[in-house]
Design a protein around this nucleic acid. Structure first.
Lengths: 243, 243
DNA sequence: TTTGGTATTGTTGTATACAATGTTGTCGGG
DNA sequence: CCCGACAACATTGTATACAACAATACCAAA
């Protein structure tokens, strides 16, 4: 729990910027996504409060929010921990996302404004850049925002909200189960292909592109059920660090 | 805010039963579903706290939970209000539910255990009972639990969770937009038909039955965009009562 | 060494006080 | 009569104190 946050926060506090529960949730979520907070990591309210310079009230709200996003586990009278989705849940998450994102893409085909299409294309272009440059964290974030944008543009706001949630959950499990050797989960040209179908207005092709993309991503993970790696980890309660 | 809750709660308190945030959320949710708390109703923390005999801390947690379930609206520095989904959102909610529940039903076809199937059948039977008896509140609750069970039995827990959320949201808008004249939104035999297909293991028929069921339900609503009835209501901020 | 109980410590649950903010009502000017 | 400023009030936001509970460490007995 002795991350770069501390100094960062100290600075922000001096600058007079008040820290809201949303800020805290954002920072923690980001850290989980970037694997700086591995599954099972304990997140005590007091500690977080000290780090961010606020009282437990604010931290509590942030934790509640994160719990509703399935980022952490919050059980009564116990310290909140970074969630470790099981292999089964990972598969189910991918399946759910295929269903929802596929439908969103299908609905979006041919209905995107030129500006929106341009914005998405720009993201995809920047992603290639990041990949070529070997800046994986930046690339991941780029890919994330691209899919988040897609969720925002969804004509059906309810589906859009669900997709936002699923994108986050998928990203977490990708970070978790990524094959050790693999440097990146980038799939050359897949985003571009999706965007082409969206621009062309071919709904079923767009849905197919989404399915292919997600299947490819899932295939890159190590989902072999070898001896509940994660479950043990969370049960044994590893607490990697303590400031 | 002077409901039967008050006495009810008083009794429970004397009985020594502690009231948790979950209890409060359950009671409020139920009241919204039963239209005893119309959209726009203000839910001040202090008042709720007095009603349930707890402090604001607990109420806050309950309200946060309800907000994440889309039952209430919670904006900074303002009193929480019962949410009034727009007509557009209602349509979108139905569409999302068709997608998700259809898929769940399709996956469930032929995979339900005999006990589960029997439990569902029992619910459907009881629903007919309630309908014949003219006990609409009981019938609604029965229908709700039937669909909630379906969500529980879903092999894909992620989809199941999403379905639970959608069932709740759909029920709220049904209560909201039900045609004035209609006594009930019961659709004779539809649940039985779905169960038959599930038992027979015909996935696509099951999906179709779900679609028909939801289309029928949606058709029973008054979704004509005539002069934002609801929006005005929430803007005018009717606060029906005050003890 | 292992086991079981117990004291200690750490952490969350709840209540409450105060600060910050939004809402409402009142009054004066146009 | 209508409109804006402003004062009074209501309500939420935050911090903190204490109680309840869980986890841990320690120690004694087998």
């Amino acid at each position: 729990m002795s991350h770069a946050w501390h100094e960062e926060m100290q600075a922000e506090i001096k600058a007079g910027a008040r820290v809201s529960d949303r800020d805290i949730a954002d920072k923690v979520r980001h850290a989980v996504l970037m694997q700086r907070l591995p599954p099972g990591t304990k997140l005590p309210e007091i500690t977080l409060g000290e780090v961010f310079g606020v009282s437990r009230s604010v931290v509590r709200k942030a934790l509640t929010r994160l719990a509703s996003e399935h980022v952490i586990d919050q059980r009564p009278n116990q310290v909140a921990r970074v969630r470790a989705p099981s292999i089964e849940e990972t598969r189910e998450t991918f399946e759910a996302r295929r269903l929802v994102e596929g439908e969103v893409a299908a609905q979006l085909a041919g209905r995107l404004s030129p500006e929106a299409l341009e914005a998405l294309t720009e993201q995809a272009r920047a992603e290639v850049e990041d990949y070529r440059r070997g800046d994986e964290p930046a690339r991941i974030e780029r890919s994330l925002t691209l899919h988040h944008r897609l969720a925002e543009y969804a004509p059906n706001r309810v589906l859009g909200g669900m997709l936002t949630d699923l994108v986050l959950r998928t990203s977490i499990v990708v970070a978790l189960y990524k094959r050790a050797g693999l440097a990146s989960c980038y799939q050359e040209g897949q985003h571009d292909r999706l965007l082409e179908h969206l621009a062309a207005g071919d709904a079923e092709a767009a849905r197919g592109a989404v399915h292919d993309h997600l299947n490819g991503l899932e295939a890159m993970l190590d989902l072999s059920p070898r001896e509940a790696r994660i479950d043990l980890m969370s049960i044994l309660g590893r607490a990697p660090e303590r400031a």
